[in-house]
Design a protein around this nucleic acid. Structure first.
Length: 288
DNA sequence: AAGACGAAAGTGGTTGA
DNA sequence: TCAACAACTTTCGTCTT
């Protein structure tokens, strides 16, 4: 079981962390002059979609310091200033470039504050590029589209993130993000299956710091609940929360409903309702 | 005292005319 | 575009541990 939230590979049955996979931040080299650029470019950063020119251009730091952190003599300062000026002009030449640059930095910001893994960032960037290419951005807020791109990316990668969380991270209303998302999904013909409760279970269990078998039990509850058609029409978060709650009780390390409710972003009442339904039906099955 | 339970009214989003 | 509708939330009182 791969747990992207913590970048760990976890055994589903015992919760043992098999390996850790820290996100590859990639070489973040900078160069101050052409010579350095030449030298480093041979082993340069892999191209990434998260920077508007795919990370292939030179970056010039805004600080007037050399690689040792010492400030530059005034003559060189002026030179660097001129370099920066031209660099800016070359890098973001026209409006759409500027738009893209801004949007991609926005995407990084959001995915940063949600602690999303890098592959999501890449995916979101690709989606956004596609949207720009199809001329879908015109007349819409960049913020909305970036948030929507991230939302699509998280769903495509099977990561449980609610609209709510993304909206919060991007300082927007859930409604706007939702609207942008629907628009984007429609225009780009993305078929995105609704998030499954089991994906939320994984997330909830992780945040509760519970034993591995709690998560396992919760998943089992979900599968039998699905067979009983208890999951249709219900919000996946509620079901996941209820399953997690039951699992925690069964495993003997009870969590309060409030705790789970807070993490799952539903209310206790919703957990109780799902909980009631699940217990009624599941006990019946087990007792046979 | 804290948590669990449930009833009732309120809220926001979807659907179908 | 609007009203009906289901799912979910809020609120609040009562019961249980």
């Amino acid at each position: 079981m791969r747990d992207y939230e913590c970048a760990e590979i976890v055994c589903m049955s015992c919760g043992f962390v098999v390996a850790t996979e820290p996100a590859d931040q990639g070489p973040e080299w900078r160069s101050f002059d052409n010579e350095q650029h030449e030298k480093r470019a041979r082993v340069g950063a892999p191209p990434t979609f998260t920077i508007h020119d795919k990370g292939l251009s030179t970056m010039i730091d805004w600080q007037d310091r050399d690689i040792y952190g010492k400030s530059l003599p005034s003559g060189e300062k002026a030179q660097i200033y001129r370099l920066r000026k031209w660099q800016r002009r070359i890098r973001v030449s026209d409006a759409s470039e500027r738009n893209l640059a801004f949007a991609l930095s926005e995407i990084s910001k959001i995915s940063d504050s949600l602690n999303l893994p890098k592959n999501i960032l890449e995916t979101a960037s690709i989606i956004y590029r596609k949207a720009v290419k199809e001329r879908l951005i015109r007349g819409r807020s960049i913020q909305g589209m970036t948030a929507a791109a991230i939302y699509v990316a998280t769903r495509q990668c099977g990561l449980a993130r609610t609209l709510e969380e993304i909206a919060q991270a991007s300082n927007m209303h859930k409604k706007e993000v939702g609207n942008s998302y629907r628009f984007l999904a429609k225009q780009l013909d993305y078929f995105i299956p609704p998030l499954k409760p089991s994906q939320y279970v994984t997330k909830i269990s992780n945040q509760l710091t519970m034993q591995g078998n709690v998560e396992e039990i919760a998943h089992k509850i979900l599968t039998s609940a699905k067979e009983l058609k208890l999951t249709s029409g219900r919000g996946p978060t509620g079901i996941a929360a209820a399953a997690s709650y039951i699992a925690s009780v069964l495993a003997g390390e009870r969590k309060t409903q409030r705790e789970i409710a807070e993490i799952a972003q539903v209310t206790e009442v919703t957990i109780r309702n799902r909980y009631k339904e699940l217990v009624e039906r599941l006990l019946f099955v087990i007792s046979i």
